[in-house]
Simulated assay, not measured.
Amino acid sequence: MSIEAKLKELGVTLPDAPAPAANYVPYVVAGDMVYISGQIPSDENGLITGILGKDMDVEAGQAAAKRCAIALLAQLKAACGGDLDRLVRVVKLGAFVSSTADFTQQPQVVNGASDFLVEALGEIGRHARSAVSAPSLPLGVAVEIDGVFQIK
């Protein structure tokens, strides 16, 4: 099954790849590697903002992380000229979670992205990652995730 067909089966439609918010490019292709800039979460209501441990719980953070993963796939599709089936594997995610100083469940929040990528992509979705706390993120978003992908 193609990646697009699997996403459709999961009820996920990729948005157009978001434009960068400042003076950088959304992705860089270097050989067979794609480095995607940090993606922030949004849905039909706009940006998903908040601080984990203050006004957001882990479940809401996971939903935000999943939206970041969807944005990463949208950027990857653009980097692959529209053909997601060029993906060989997800290599690494770097995740930042806006959270209070005493919040320690950043890995569980980022599981929202990791679990989605494995569900959508199978074994090629398994990846290395980091999940760290940040006192604030751009535009007040709850999560920001960047990624490294191998393509053919």
Rank of each mutant, 00 (worst) to 15 (best):
T100G: 03
E144Y: 01
Q39M: 11
T100C: 02
M1E: 09
G31Y: 05
I124V: 14
V88E: 12
H127W: 02
C68H: 06
V88D: 10
V110I: 09
E119P: 00
V34Q: 08
T13L: 12
V90S: 02
S98M: 09
G50P: 00
V143P: 03
F103N: 02
A113R: 03
V29P: 01
M33K: 15
L76D: 04
D32F: 01
G147Q: 06
K152P: 00
E144C: 14
T49G: 03
S2H: 07
S99Y: 01
A134E: 13
L84F: 06
A142W: 05
P135M: 11
P15N: 11
H127C: 14
A113E: 02
R86K: 15
V109Y: 01
P18A: 10
A65W: 03
L14N: 07
K54C: 00
V29K: 15
F96H: 13
V29L: 11
A22C: 06
P41H: 06
K6R: 15
A19D: 04
G11H: 09
L87W: 04
D43P: 00
A19L: 05
P138L: 11
M56P: 00
P41L: 03
A78N: 13
L47H: 07
V148E: 15
A30L: 11
S37V: 04
K152T: 14
D43T: 04
E4W: 01
S99Q: 10
A22F: 03
K54N: 10
V88I: 14
D57A: 11
A131Y: 04
F103W: 04
A64C: 11
G140V: 14
L76M: 09
G11K: 13
K92N: 13
A17W: 07
I48A: 04
E144K: 14
T13S: 14
R126L: 14
T100V: 03
R67C: 02
I3H: 05
V97L: 05
S2M: 08
S2F: 05
V12C: 02
S130V: 13
G61L: 08
A63G: 12
V88N: 08
Y27F: 15
G61P: 01
G31N: 10
A120V: 02
A69G: 06
K152L: 15
E44M: 07
V88W: 01
I151G: 02
A74V: 11
A64M: 11
G38K: 08
Q108R: 13
G125Q: 04
S2Q: 11
L47M: 12
V148I: 15
V110G: 01
Y27V: 07
V58T: 15
L73N: 10
A134M: 13
E9M: 09
G38C: 08
D102N: 12
A19G: 00
Q75C: 14
V148W: 07
A79N: 05
T104W: 01
K66M: 11
D146H: 13
